[in-house]
């Protein structure tokens, strides 16, 4: 079912164009900055506000993780999503899709190669940022592990995959890369807004961005976390299936 030549091409495209460089630089930068900002936030605030006396508690490794989760689930994820939204739309726009789909390639093979490539790239980005952030947190605070860290990371990773799938769905629906990016951003905004309702977070495929903070503060319910994991998985399956069903019948 999987066409390895297509998957190889997708991965090479990330590497040979500037996409991967941009993404890895962005993820690495925020992975490095998150613990650094957490550690020196008091000093920074002291420097910028000389006439007001701001008294904050001493930062801990938990602040570094909070900062990391916030950065990874906002700017880094948005940029990653925008890049992935171009994956099918750009090929439709340029006409390169026609040369591929008129060969011995099924539409499923085409779309699954895009999906797997996005997962692989996101996983690399996530792991690199995680290693940098964890190591630097340890360096600055002498501690980085806490109870629920592994589950938090799985939740964050799954949420990234969910958004990648949403980006592919947007890319399938849209006729141009710009429209696809817009659809992707709207999707991101909608799922993030759903997190405002606390009761909905566990059922939201993007609920991880809020739940990881609760886990870090020791205020989360384990059942809720697993429900969220299930909802995210379901969200991935649904988003991919809808994207494929549309793409299968789409006239190029």
């Amino acid at each position: 079912m999987l066409n390895l030549a297509l998957l190889k091409k997708e991965l090479m495209e990330y590497l040979k164009t500037s996409k991967f460089i941009v993404l890895i630089a962005l993820f690495a930068f925020f992975a490095f900055m998150s613990p650094l900002l957490a550690r020196y936030i008091n000093e920074i605030l002291g420097l910028v506000s000389t006439d007001i006396n701001i008294s904050l508690p001493d930062p801990t490794y938990a602040d570094a993780w909070l900062q990391y989760y916030k950065n990874m689930s906002s700017l880094c994820l948005i940029v990653f999503m925008i890049i992935v939204t171009g994956t099918v739309a750009q090929e439709k726009n340029k006409g390169s899709i026609m040369l591929v789909l008129t060969k011995k390639v099924s539409r499923f093979q085409f779309i699954i190669a895009k999906f797997l490539a996005a997962i692989i790239i996101y996983t690399i980005l996530f792991l690199v940022s995680l290693i940098i952030s964890a190591a630097y947190t340890y360096f600055l605070f002498d501690q980085f592990v806490y109870s629920g860290l592994a589950l938090s990371l799985v939740l964050m990773w799954m949420m990234g995959i969910f958004y990648a799938t949403m980006a592919i769905l947007a890319s399938v629906i849209a006729k141009s890369p710009t429209t696809a990016a817009l659809y992707g951003f709207v999707g991101y905004a909608v799922f993030n807004l759903l997190n405002i309702a606390t009761g909905l977070q566990k059922y939201n495929p993007a609920g991880a961005s809020s739940l990881v903070n609760s886990i870090l503060m020791g205020a989360s319910s384990n059942i809720d976390n697993w429900i969220c994991l299930g909802a995210t998985f379901l969200g991935i399956v649904i988003a991919f299936s809808v994207g494929y069903m549309i793409f299968r019948k789409q006239e190029i």
């Binding site: 091409k9 006409g95 040369l99 008129t102």
Partner: peptide, 14 residues
């Protein structure tokens, strides 16, 4: 598909 080779009017390459 193996029996047909196709070139569209404006071919898009990588």
């Amino acid at each position: 598909r193996s029996e047909i080779g196709f070139l569209p009017d404006v071919p898009g390459f990588y």
